[in-house]
Design a protein around this nucleic acid. Structure first.
Lengths: 337, 337
DNA sequence: TTGTACGCGTTATCAA
DNA sequence: TTGATAACGCGTACAA
């Protein structure tokens, strides 16, 4: 492995001259030596050791991407939403010259260990963190951290979110307009998950606006996995709930519900209308194609990266919230009753 | 940020003693000092700087994971197979105490730059590399590299693959047993893609065994994306090909074909039988559920990690090929004619 | 324009 | 059992 010194020796100059060439400080080097050094670098296939560089300079050019949640998941990357978002962010970051270290640990403390271990320039949390975890992380953070889909009650962090209230409201209103009155809400509803809480609030608002009474029985609390959807779908088909439609907080859950219902003889949309959330590619793959609340994953990734870059460049940016819009994507899983 | 020196100063001992405690060399330290130091580490929340460590020690505890291919992809992580495989590998590696740097660059040279930049302990290539790229990479590799789904004509690398010939053979034979005689092959067929070539060979072998003639017209050469499948499906429905069944080299492509056929009035499996490849979760989400050749992603990930670990531990292991078995997963997309 | 000396945080060696 | 010192590869400050 060629080092700076090797190149310097070969060129008969000091390490400093080589360093200047590498870092593009061409004004400080004569054209002749510059060319010589450039050729040598090519010949030796020299690549700087970034560990060494990050030791002296403050920047490591590493961004940590963390996926962790209480919601049990064997493999975060079987979730198409998470995967797609991750891929978009990775691409954006790489184009800006950063390396990415991923970690899917369930343990929040690993986040701060990671950032200290490698002196990362920034961190992006891809999955929902409850507020206590968030506070814990922020309290001993030493670099900018962007949270996607997390609550920020104290508004003291960098967060990217979507208009969850509007999502819940829009979906529910759409169902109501189609004549539905008995509409269930299915998702991972919990006190410390503001995302789902807001969607639920939107759902309630639409119900109230239409003068439709709400009862606890309409809340189907569940993890958002395909398998959980199957069970719920079967229950629905077996008339465990008295409903004609269900708004779910994730496409993958909706797909499971549709399948479960079908297994027990309840056909979507004829016997049951379903609306999802996310607008994954998956929505077009299934039958019937899933009507859903669409969030723009690319836009979300881009907003997260922009915000992180801003915060890295400017120390003073340490709390800011970006809320992205959502809209209904009409397909085939809802029927007029 | 507390450093080794900070802890040493606080404890009134040398850095070396602290280092020994951190690295578990307890025999070299008195019990009393050990406890003192451990407490201090806890109090200061000390975490070692791995950049510094990797400068001195040979190991960086970083594994690079590279996704790159000529096959155009905006975002590798929209491919469920790739995502799932990546997630499995990440988990396995993390459990073994490694950090992961991901890179999705299209440029092969970035792979070697990455490995030099960070002095990675090993690299895993997640996507197919043609043999020339592979040779290029291997020629200036300085650490163990495992290739998944790549050809290794010279058998001089570490590779993980599946029995592609058997996959093609089994699928085709299955179709033949169901009475099909006009069977197309759809996939990214190219000279430098041994994977697909082998599947095609298996396909040919089954045809030959049954005495069914093959013609070039049965080869549908295409990128393996959903959108490409749509086009092919439409073509099939429009009788561009004279076939009753198609074996595809990827589930996502099969799903597209089914949809495209349907758009033009050709219903699977009644009018057309389709077999996929991979056995993604997606197969169960679609209608009809997709019959496919199943490869065990978890097993593949595990084999890749095991092989890499072996190679890291033992310099002498620099070429070895692991071939995993495949099998038919029967669902609903094939009919008896 | 070029070179020297030092420090970044850690570990290995060797001596005490 | 402990500690002093050199070394890893690079960048910055300063001097020539």
């Amino acid at each position: 492995m060629a080092t700076l010194k090797d190149i310097a020796d070969a060129a008969g100059v000091s390490m400093m001259t080589v360093s200047n060439v590498i870092n593009g400080n061409y004004k400080k080097v004569s054209a002749k030596k510059k060319k010589l050094i450039l050729d040598l670098i090519e010949e030796y296939q020299y690549v700087p050791n970034l560990s060494a560089r990050s030791l002296t300079s403050k920047s490591s050019k590493i961004i940590g991407i963390i996926l962790s949640s209480g919601n049990p998941q064997e493999n975060f990357f079987t979730n198409p939403y998470t995967s797609e978002l991750f891929g978009e962010i990775e691409t954006l970051l790489r184009e800006k010259g950063y390396y990415i270290i991923v970690s899917t640990s369930q343990n929040i403390d690993d986040a701060s260990t990671l950032s200290k271990n490698w002196n990362v320039d920034g961190v992006i949390f891809l999955t929902h963190q409850d507020s206590s975890s968030m506070q814990k992380i922020l309290s001993n953070s030493k670099c900018p951290m962007v949270f996607i889909d997390s609550n920020d009650p104290s508004a003291s962090a960098l967060t990217i979110g979507i208009d969850d209230f509007k999502g819940g409201y829009t979906a529910t209103k759409y169902l109501i307009h189609r004549g539905h009155k008995k509409i269930a809400f299915a998702g991972y509803y919990s006190d410390d998950n503001a995302i789902i809480f807001q969607r639920h609030r939107g759902y309630l608002a639409a119900l109230k606006e239409a003068g439709i009474p709400y009862s606890e029985q309409l809340l189907i609390n569940t993890f958002t996995r395909y398998e959980d959807g199957i069970i719920i779908g079967r229950d629905i088909a077996n008339n465990k709930y008295d409903i004609t439609a269900v708004f779910t907080t994730a496409d993958i859950l909706a797909v499971g519900i549709i399948e479960g219902a079908k297994l027990n003889g309840c056909i979507v949309p004829n016997d049951l209308s379903v609306i999802g959330f996310d607008n994954l590619k998956l929505c077009s793959y299934v039958t019937p194609k899933l009507t859903t609340i669409s969030q723009n994953v690319h836009q979300k990734a881009s907003a997260a990266v922009d915000l992180l870059m801003d915060a890295i460049d400017d120390e003073s940016i340490r709390n800011r919230t970006v809320i992205l819009d959502v809209q209904l994507e009409e397909r085939q899983s809802v029927i007029h009753v």
